[in-house]
Design a protein around this nucleic acid. Structure first.
Lengths: 334, 334
DNA sequence: TATAATAGTGACAAGTATTGTCATAAAATA
DNA sequence: TATTTTATGACAATACTTGTCACTATTATA
């Protein structure tokens, strides 16, 4: 049963196009195979393949048993109809990626970008040239080193465990984890993962991962296929002791908190743009929140918990002591 | 002089491919025109065009003088060879755009994304499916409204002036500006522009632009073609009174400051990851910097200017008063 | 080493598709 | 109405495509 309409009465041009799609679907194939599928002789397929090669499809062949044709490395995308707006959007999406010094794809997107650009028709290209340095998506310039992104992503996709060396507050520890995924936020890469050391889901900062080895063969991977970036937080932070936290926020406060803890689902926003935080936070994060709300100044008003307020108070005192009654630093750095 | 090699001895298949490119370059054309260009008869071109139509190129024709063929709306990109890695990178670049609720392109990138996805061969698609919710580029979730992005961008590209209503610190003012470009940073859109009211380059936050009208016909556009996103800061902040600012930063402090003021060129980084700030800041921004460095706590150590330290001190005292000796808010909000 | 599987080339005849020409129609425009 | 343009049909000449056959070369494997 042929998937293609009337493959027996197909014109050469159409056959070539279909052939292009077919050889890209199956990367490896023999002449006879295609001849049967298309209902033409092997000789014809051979001629067609040669023509495809001249047209730019990178074909490679090997003779002998288990030999055959292969599409080298690259795939040909069939002709795609893009509107001008779409092409432009696509271009700038890729363009934005150039800000990331570390991305989990081995090939740089810039080569794809170049091809795209090269094949676009004249006036779209002109438009892009004009817009090129008039619109941008900025991410923080210098980013912490994260050389293991592709390994972590691969492990997440393949449901495998890896053994990482992780530096948290000057403590270097080694543990088996099974990554759930990776994401970039404010210039840093994060990796939520099941941690076999702690027996639960934890969030790791990729720049603090100092080494990645193959997973311990003893620790069997779990089935975490149903846990991914959109829902991993449900399985997170249920273990450590929590405290209820409530904070009133001004419009500006809402904006900052969205940037900082958008993914945690603690934040509620009123219609007028102001909002509040109400939810449980792990005790271990109290210092982090204290710093956040101090930075917000009058745009945040913490009402709970007392521990957080106390922590803020002590930090404030410390800072005040540092800057009070002096215009020179108390302990200059080297 | 034909751009194409041996157009007179071209096989039909090749001619069709070239034709596809040609009709997409010139969006409007007549049959006779193409016949001459390709060195074949009009009848042949007519037949070819019909075939192109059947192959999916959206052609439209009108008879009569000034009639002719048109490619409707969409462009066909010629077949492009992408490596698997490239295709994946391209996909995720577009995927990342979905976080932006406001982008300056009228068409959503998602439609381009859909087409891309649709035409990709099976196993690349599988790979993308598996990676889809395992890797992400996060930008702050809810973003301030910025409905005028495309107008501003258009004005920047076209070197035109626009008249905006701008809200800065509760003051609503109207002024003519000539946009230099737009960029997104930490969830907000910014628009550097020449401000005819202030007579210099200023930075505007797009969510504070309340209205955009056509530029005043009296204010003639300047030639700002040589000024764009990569260099506009050179023409910026030379007018307002500045003060030298010096701050020592820990590793963490460097990271935050890079995110906040990466584009200003004030920041220097040492090899060990720590760094310092040394440069002129406008006096008007002292409150902003005060808040920033208070938020950084012990990760920042301000040494200059005294005004900034004084500002921080007063803010600290205010905050301390707010949170001192109370566990309930002093003035609960409604 | 022999065998089978595979690509690759060349020649040729039969068949098929492509092309140009001519005729004609229809629509739009000036 | 004359002109420009798309659009369609018929037909013959030509060019291309295809299958078959014969043959070579390479490689893995029995």
């Amino acid at each position: 049963m042929s998937k293609h309409e009337s493959r027996d009465t197909m014109s050469k041009s159409k056959r070539l196009l279909e052939l292009m799609l077919t050889v890209n679907r199956k990367r490896k194939f023999t002449v006879k195979e295609l001849a049967l599928e298309f209902g033409v002789s092997s000789r014809t397929i051979l001629r067609d393949l040669q023509e495809l090669g001249e047209l730019g499809v990178p074909l490679y062949s090997e003779v002998g048993p288990h030999g055959g044709y292969q599409v080298l490395n690259e795939r040909i995308l069939p002709p795609i109809a893009f509107t001008e707006e779409e092409a432009v959007a696509l271009f700038f999406a890729c363009h934005a990626l150039r800000h990331y010094s570390y991305i989990p794809f081995e090939t740089e997107a810039s080569s794809a970008l170049g091809k795209f650009y090269h094949y676009m028709s004249g006036d779209v290209r002109d438009r892009i040239d004009q817009m090129k340095n008039r619109v941008d998506f900025v991410v923080p310039a210098r980013q912490a080193e994260s050389p293991y992104l592709s390994v972590l992503l691969e492990a997440a996709v393949m449901q495998q465990t890896v053994r990482i060396g992780y530096k948290s507050q000057d403590t270097l520890s080694e543990r088996n984890i099974q990554p759930i995924g990776i994401y970039a936020s404010s210039g840093l890469w994060y990796c939520p993962a099941y941690c076999f050391l702690r027996g639960g889901v934890r969030l790791f900062r990729c720049d603090r991962i100092e080494s990645v080895k193959e997973g311990d063969p003893v620790t069997k991977p779990l089935d975490l296929r149903s846990i991914h970036l959109d829902n991993w937080e449900d399985s997170f932070s249920d273990k450590s002791p929590n405290t209820r936290c409530r904070v009133q926020l001004s419009e500006e406060g809402v904006r900052v908190c969205e940037a900082e803890l958008g993914r945690r689902g603690l934040l509620r926003v009123r219609e007028d743009g102001t909002g509040w935080i109400d939810g449980d936070i792990p005790n271990s994060e109290i210092p982090y929140f204290a710093r956040l709300f101090i930075g917000l100044g009058s745009d945040a008003e913490v009402t709970e918990p007392p521990e957080l307020i106390e922590c803020m108070r002590s930090k404030l005192k410390e800072l005040l002591a540092k800057y009070d009654g002096q215009d020179q630093p108390s302990s200059p750095r080297t």
